Simulated assay, not measured.
Amino acid sequence: MPKIHETAFVAENAIIIGDVEIGPHASIWYGCVIRGDVNAIRIGAETNIQDGSVVHATHDRNGDYRQTGGGVPTLIGEGVTVGHMALLHACEVQSRAFIGMRSVVMDRAVVESGAMVAAGAVVTPGKRVPGGELWSGTPAAFMRSLRPEEVDMIPYLRDNYLQLAASYQDSGSSEGS
């Protein structure tokens, strides 16, 4: 069963199943699917997963991942912004990273802290997106170093979604968790 912190906001039509842990003040928005049925999914504090996004992992072909440690979980750090309709699959998104709208981060890829994946980008399996860089395209590749205003945007978006989630919780717009 999912473990959702009592301060997290979960929209009433989000679907969360399986071995999922969601940290304090995280927000899971409308139409999201977070499916921890074949491996673990961990979502850190103050992270926002925006509308229509899908988060999944990979199973262990040799047995139950809880006993063997196999397969690949999806790990999302603290203060991460995941844009609308993104797909995160068996990957790691470190704290304070940014994942653009309709982007894809595939198996065993790592998006480092302070990195930015552009809207529509596809981060292919095993790629590593270094902090301080913007990656874009299909397949995603280094575009340029982040500008100061883009670096500043990451905590701004986190704070904006913290306030937005709090307003939804205060108004009773969601069942919450």
Rank of each mutant, 00 (worst) to 15 (best):
Asp19Val: 04
Val20Pro: 01
Val20Leu: 14
Ile22Pro: 00
Ile22Phe: 12
Ile22Gly: 02
Gly23Gln: 06
Gly23Val: 07
Pro24Lys: 15
His25Phe: 15
His25Val: 00
Ala26Thr: 05
Ala26Asn: 05
Ser27Cys: 09
Ser27Asn: 13
Ile28Val: 15
Trp29Ala: 09
Tyr30Gln: 08
Tyr30Leu: 13
Gly31Val: 13
Gly31Asn: 04
Cys32Asp: 00
Val33Tyr: 03
Ile34Asn: 03
Arg35Glu: 12
Gly36Gln: 10
Asp37Ile: 09
Asp37Trp: 08
Asp37Leu: 10
Asp37Lys: 11
Asp37Phe: 06
Val38Phe: 05
Ala40His: 10
Ala40Ile: 01
Ala40Gly: 06
Ile41Lys: 08
Ile41Gln: 05
Ile43Asp: 06
Ile43Cys: 10
Gly44Thr: 06
Gly44Cys: 05
Ala45Met: 02
Ala45Pro: 00
Glu46Asp: 13
Glu46Asn: 14
Glu46Leu: 00
Glu46Phe: 07
Thr47Pro: 01
Ile49Gly: 02
Ile49His: 05
Ile49Gln: 03
Gln50Val: 10
Gly52Met: 06
Val54Gln: 04
Val54Leu: 15
Val54His: 02
His56Phe: 12
His56Gly: 09
His56Leu: 12
Ala57Glu: 06
Ala57Ser: 15
Ala57Pro: 01
Asp60Ala: 14
Asp60Leu: 02
Asp60Asn: 09
Gly63Pro: 10
Gly63Cys: 11
Asp64Ile: 09
Asp64Ala: 13
Tyr65Ser: 11
Arg66Trp: 11
Gln67Asp: 12
Gln67Glu: 14
Gln67His: 13
Gln67Cys: 06
Thr68Met: 01
Thr68Leu: 09
Thr68Lys: 11
Thr68Asp: 00
Gly70Asp: 06
Gly71Cys: 10
Gly71Tyr: 04
Val72Thr: 15
Pro73Ala: 15
Thr74Arg: 08
Leu75Ala: 11
Ile76Ala: 10
Gly77Arg: 10
Gly77Lys: 10
Gly79Ala: 04
Gly79Lys: 04
Gly79Tyr: 12
Gly79Ile: 01
Val80Glu: 13
Val80Arg: 10
Val82Asp: 08
Gly83Arg: 02
Met85Asn: 15
Ala86Asn: 05
Leu87Asn: 02
Leu87Lys: 01
Leu88Ala: 06
Leu88Gln: 04
Leu88Val: 02
Leu88Arg: 05
His89Ala: 09
Cys91Lys: 02
Glu92Lys: 07
Glu92Arg: 12
Glu92Tyr: 00
Glu92Leu: 00
Glu92Pro: 00
Gln94Lys: 14
Gln94Thr: 01
Gln94Trp: 07
Gln94Tyr: 01
Ser95Met: 01
Ser95Asp: 08
Ser95Pro: 02
Arg96Ile: 00
Arg96Asn: 15
Ala97Gln: 07
Ala97Gly: 13
Phe98Val: 00
Ile99Glu: 06
Ile99Ala: 04
Gly100Phe: 04
Gly100Thr: 05
Gly100Ser: 09
Arg102Ile: 03
Arg102Gln: 15
Arg102Met: 11
Arg102Ala: 11
Ser103Gln: 07
Val105Lys: 07
Val105Trp: 05
Asp107Ala: 00
Val110Ser: 07
Val111Ser: 08
Val111Gln: 12
Val111Ile: 12
Glu112Asp: 14
Ser113Glu: 13
Gly114Gln: 03
Ala115Tyr: 09
Ala115Val: 02
Met116Phe: 15
